[in-house]
């Protein structure tokens, strides 16, 4: 725990020492507010469905931006060699870095709460789906980030890491979407819908938190963090 904490602090410090964190947060909050309120005043209804429905796409871009440097930079600077020869277990390093990225995700979502408050003040908003939406958004974002840290450990080039994690996230999302499932044979359709990142987000977003959806996200996150730990162990067999 001490090690996880030390790594977490180190990563957080370097997020906020550099402009990365600020840029990501400001861009995210600014961009989502703008996109949302642009159509909000046209529809003129106190719901946030449109807001949450654009998050899967935005996270696909912002997730890789957050995670791309986590391992790639260690490899590039060769600090990996020092990190891995200190008394830290691989999984502790993975977890510390991952939690730092979750912190950034949480900041993004918390700083976008004023959107919900604005909507609520303008009309009679049903908080159920909004709270569900935020929880779903956090879980989905967390899944994207786990894909992102894993991608980051595959290369020492941050740009490559970002591109790989974008396409992996995109693939994980798209396989469950209706236009892909539509062309699937019925037997596979249910499986694909379950594996896809989006369907669970939608079901949590309705305001019902089903343990199956939670289990799904925890499984995806666990799986990619496991791959991440294996990925940094790969140096041993090089």
């Amino acid at each position: 725990m001490r090690n996880v904490c030390a790594i977490f602090q180190k990563e957080l410090r370097s997020y906020f020492n550099s402009p990365v964190a600020y840029i990501v947060i400001i861009l995210f909050v600014g961009f989502t507010s703008w996109l949302f309120f642009r159509s909000f005043f046209i529809a003129n209804r106190a719901v946030m469905r449109d807001y949450f429905s654009m998050l899967p796409w935005l996270f696909m871009i912002f997730g890789p931006l957050i995670t791309m440097r986590l391992w790639a930079e260690e490899k590039k600077l060769k600090t990996m060699e020092l990190l891995m020869t200190m008394p830290i277990k691989d999984w502790q390093a993975v977890l510390g870095k991952y939690i730092a990225s979750l912190f950034l995700l949480s900041s993004m979502l918390i700083l976008s709460l004023p959107i919900a408050i604005t909507v609520a003040s303008l009309g009679n908003m049903d908080w159920g789906p909004v709270i569900g939406g935020y929880i779903g958004a956090f879980l989905m974002g967390a899944a994207y980030l786990s894909i992102g840290v894993f991608a980051s450990c595959l290369t020492e080039n941050q740009i490559v890491a970002a591109i790989v994690s974008f396409f992996l996230s995109f693939a994980m999302w798209i396989i469950g979407e209706s236009f892909v499932i539509f062309v699937m044979p019925a037997s596979l359709a249910a499986l694909f819908e379950y594996v896809g990142l989006g369907s669970h987000f939608k079901s949590i977003g309705r305001g019902v938190i089903d343990s199956r959806d939670l289990i799904y996200y925890f499984t995806v996150i666990g799986f990619f963090l496991f791959l991440n730990a294996k990925g940094i162990e790969r140096r041993k067999w090089a």
Binding site: K10, R13, S14, N17, S18, L77, K78, T79, M80, E81, L82, T85
Partner: peptide, 14 residues
């Protein structure tokens, strides 16, 4: 062990 690897890799932003 205390280890100083070749070319002293360090976190430059700290």
């Amino acid at each position: 062990i205390g280890y100083l690897p070749e070319s002293a890799p360090l976190y430059l932003d700290m």
